[in-house]
Design a protein around this nucleic acid. Sequence first.
DNA 1: GATGAATGAGTCTTCATTCAT
DNA 2: GATGAATGAAGACTCATTCAT
Lengths: 238, 238, 238, 238
Amino acid sequence: MDGRPANDTTSPWMPFENRRRARDEKREAVLRTAVQLFLEQGYHRATLNEVAERLNITKPALYNYFRSKEDILFECWALGQEQVDGFIAAIDGSRQNGLGKLRALVHSYAETMATDFGASLVRFDPRDLSPSNAKTVRAAKRGIDRTFRRYITEGIADGSIKPCDPKMAAFAIAGSLNWIGHWYQRGGELTPDAIADDFAERLTEGLATATVNKRPIKQPPAPRTKKSAARAPTTKKK
Amino acid sequence: MDGRPANDTTSPWMPFENRRRARDEKREAVLRTAVQLFLEQGYHRATLNEVAERLNITKPALYNYFRSKEDILFECWALGQEQVDGFIAAIDGSRQNGLGKLRALVHSYAETMATDFGASLVRFDPRDLSPSNAKTVRAAKRGIDRTFRRYITEGIADGSIKPCDPKMAAFAIAGSLNWIGHWYQRGGELTPDAIADDFAERLTEGLATATVNKRPIKQPPAPRTKKSAARAPTTKKK
Amino acid sequence: MDGRPANDTTSPWMPFENRRRARDEKREAVLRTAVQLFLEQGYHRATLNEVAERLNITKPALYNYFRSKEDILFECWALGQEQVDGFIAAIDGSRQNGLGKLRALVHSYAETMATDFGASLVRFDPRDLSPSNAKTVRAAKRGIDRTFRRYITEGIADGSIKPCDPKMAAFAIAGSLNWIGHWYQRGGELTPDAIADDFAERLTEGLATATVNKRPIKQPPAPRTKKSAARAPTTKKK
Amino acid sequence: MDGRPANDTTSPWMPFENRRRARDEKREAVLRTAVQLFLEQGYHRATLNEVAERLNITKPALYNYFRSKEDILFECWALGQEQVDGFIAAIDGSRQNGLGKLRALVHSYAETMATDFGASLVRFDPRDLSPSNAKTVRAAKRGIDRTFRRYITEGIADGSIKPCDPKMAAFAIAGSLNWIGHWYQRGGELTPDAIADDFAERLTEGLATATVNKRPIKQPPAPRTKKSAARAPTTKKK
DNA sequence: GATGAATGAGTCTTCATTCAT
DNA sequence: GATGAATGAAGACTCATTCAT
């Protein structure tokens, strides 16, 4: 229409380099910004305007990547859930007795709770989601609960865990872990790893049978001896 | 339920006392309705209109009793906190070792979590409050946390609790308890009392020293021996 | 309903009654203003802000009376439809042959088309309505069409109307009438009544059998002899 | 990805003619798609995105062919108007009495109403156009109205049409015809041709003087004997 | 010529809160 | 003390349009 000569002028400062980041990177950037803001201020108080501002874009630009505010919320949650699904799958595939799996789960879950996306799993309210997404979330939550109970049940069966009510035990453990998502502050005294080690031990010592069961706690792929092993034998007996 | 006509007939000029009482009753009714709705739907999704509707009054009528929606939220929280303050004071005043106090605290706290006002303590978001009220809430929360740590420290000092990090122990215990506020459903299989008993035992067994320490768990005013006493000694050794 | 003491204070100006009336009056005022604006500018270009401005209120005030912009649109349509339902019922109940009914229908319909709410029947787009409301509208439109065909069929049966295809005849007549809603301007040369008279004659003369059938055209309640009766027989031949 | 190699191979410098032709074809394709969508969903509900989608191009690409959405709307209308201008010119140039011209006009207009671009003449809202374009449209509409009146007046003058008010007669006829644009459905029972025949007869029979005037109705350039000629004489009575 | 990304302008809608009665 | 009505403030979302590539 105008044959814009503009094309000829090869701009030396590549003015749009900033904007040319890959689409997926931007999507992710939105999610990272959003999850932070949502955690900081709460979903309802956080406005898309502020999300956009932090990203140096305008509000409608967000709609290039997400369908709605709720969509963003859901995707934040989904990223967190992905992590969980990941380590649950790894643990499921590992060769450990029930107690070992439970400890690995606690450890990984604790670490996850110390991440933004992980915390979003317990600090976002499913009622803010569309019915369909809320259903997905609730199903996933049930799945996590079942995993806790499953490992406990397994442990009881294989003798690594003392007989107890898996349901209540799971509730108690999950509660402690979820709570991390509320109190953990990045940059505080405690590192996620330290918290995870502590909780892995603390939340399972009461369940362990008296036999030798202080071994790897972290995820199977990376078994380390860790300081946790150095701890004073918690149980022992005789 | 209200019997108001009775009041009218007995005296054409509703006495002062009656008025005050009626006012307080209504205030309370508002809070009971509000806390339920807020828990049900979340503070932001719940509208004053619906609160009013459930009370068969109109929205502006609420402003006769409360200054704002936030005021209602805060008062709900305050009622829950009152309960907590109450049993903490009672436990503080009781003669028990640290472990005993901790158990009593866990028990009472668990029971409270199963009430609407109790659950509001952990399910309401302080960021929805005015800065001034938020400050109050945060102070109270710190107070509770300090109480947990205090009892643990006491227990360590008096030998009833094994040496451990009071901070982490408190976090773990509080997390399990707070979680009750999220999963407990009135009318479910578990009664608040049963939950409280279970948690009082479960959350402290790992901390107890091996000596005789299975005794009263419930609030000092009403010490009972309970089934929990019948449990197999959790601590092993010797 | 509730016996609230308020009733005891027999207000001389019946404040409540006034309020109710005022409410209905306001509702109507909103609809009158809205239908005008919608016709003037079209539904999409018209904003609730402007509706409110013309009423000297603010936009959210409209929501005291209507649920949504679409609700207003639908109610405008409904008022027009009411008129139509009214005169169709009257004509149905009248003792006339088919041609007489058809003429009465044409007359009344033409008059209605010259009113705002009447014009809204043909100038508003059902696709702007919710699926549910759109269904209602479409059903009503079919009803009107059926009525035209019914009277024509009746007329053919009773000999007052020449054999013809009722469907096409109805389309042709309805088209002419609906068009009025587009060109009629209040305050123009032609009065609604004059238009109605003219169309009642014009649109039916081609259908009438050659026999005496120039009689009352207007609605049964007010039969007049009219100029139309003076017209030269339209068909005849030789 | 582009597949255009065909063009590229035949000639590295795509000839000018080809380019122009390709451009015009695309422009037309846009208009055909747009007019359909606009009729389907209404101008305001239809988005350029959807227009583009149906064409398998992207939204901004449309701006290579049109200046704005409104421009597209106007061009759609213009194509319809071209048809009308065409047959009016033809009829004007034909040798017929007023009634003959009117019939021809009705017939052609009816046929046009059954096309997308024709329907756009009466289903698009001039208020959606820029003031300048709206003026053009309104002038054209007046032109059509004047043509109807002109033929009627001619017919009255030449004795083929009974004395009557040309203005009202034109309104009635135009209304019936415009209505076709609203109810005609491609693929329905009635073909455009059948509708045109029917309306040409139906809408003029009331105006015709009693003399012989049942003859060709279709456009002069292509006078056919048609079924319409075969029709039973509409006027009865020997 | 075509595209992905971004934007500005605008609208509906919600809701806590106030006010006259 | 209670009510109907009204409002102000705010936020999500849409979409035609424009850049730079």
